[in-house]
Design a protein around this nucleic acid. Structure first.
Lengths: 139, 139
DNA sequence: AGCGAGACTGAGAACCGTTGTCAAACCGAC
DNA sequence: GTCGGTTTGACAACGGTTCTCAGTCTCGCT
């Protein structure tokens, strides 16, 4: 334990800096998935100035804390968005990026069952559904 | 239509070269997911010599043709393996990479239903399950 | 067998998202 | 105000992937 303590027993201090506030504000400004660079641009357009490395650092921290979801596009790029704390999956529009959080208890159970059948333990899973949302497909 | 035709109406010719055979042979030599670079190394170790760019090109082509599966690690790296032609998902061991193809008709249906409920069309989905396989967790 | 058109390849450069570096700025406690 | 640790930003470095392009190879046609 080498850090100044404040709440729990070994949690390094996390300071509420201008930069972290700017990233948090940016995350509140959209509800689809955005890349780190897009978020960085958004912050700039809002008049703030935050280094790209800091945006990455902050997003990673928030993701570790479970406050944002990170997933990967088909191309391998990381995209992020604020999320609810509970376990869920996403329905993402390919065209406009609109995102709906969905739950799939049946899927969770299926994953556990299938894994157990094959002797796998410590299960985690990724599940994302992509499609074209109503307004994009009628356009 | 600018290409020489042979089978269907606009399919560009695909030639069975030494390099493509080497990649195909390498794919037959393992049944877990490997990165393009690992596959490239494997080919070298087998005595063949194929450029890395060619490995990437061939894997992409095979993936488009549905003959190999490509998925992304948590870090965004593409990994590949030969697959059966039918739609399926994977149960992958985090430790040793051992992979089991699994089917989840209930999941497919769940995805379709959820998507329809939210007005999404042209659905596709990704679902992978990660865990620790029996031999790795007892070790 | 020989030829021509076009597909294919490899070496290396380019690309691009992401992470590491490190000195300077900052925050909070005293 | 002062001090120590945290945070930051400019920039370099990194790693996987794609692009480039001149040289090579295949194949269909004679």
């Amino acid at each position: 334990m080498t850090s100044t303590e404040r709440g729990g027993p070994d949690r390094p201090t996390v300071r509420p800096t201008r930069q972290r506030r700017a990233v948090a504000a940016a995350l509140d400004a959209f509800d689809d998935f955005r890349s780190a660079q897009e978020i960085h641009d958004l912050i700039s357009r809002q008049g703030d100035s935050v280094g790209l490395a800091t945006v990455y650092r902050t997003l990673s921290t928030l993701a570790d804390a479970g406050e944002v979801d990170m997933l990967r596009t088909e191309e391998g790029e990381a995209i992020w968005r604020r999320c609810s704390g509970t376990h869920h999956h996403h329905l993402v529009c390919r065209a406009c990026g609109a995102t709906v959080e969905v739950e799939g208890p049946a899927v969770e159970q299926w994953a556990d069952t299938v894994a157990a059948e094959h002797g796998f333990a410590a299960i985690s899973h990724t599940l994302e559904v992509f499609g074209t949302c109503r307004s994009c497909s009628t356009r």
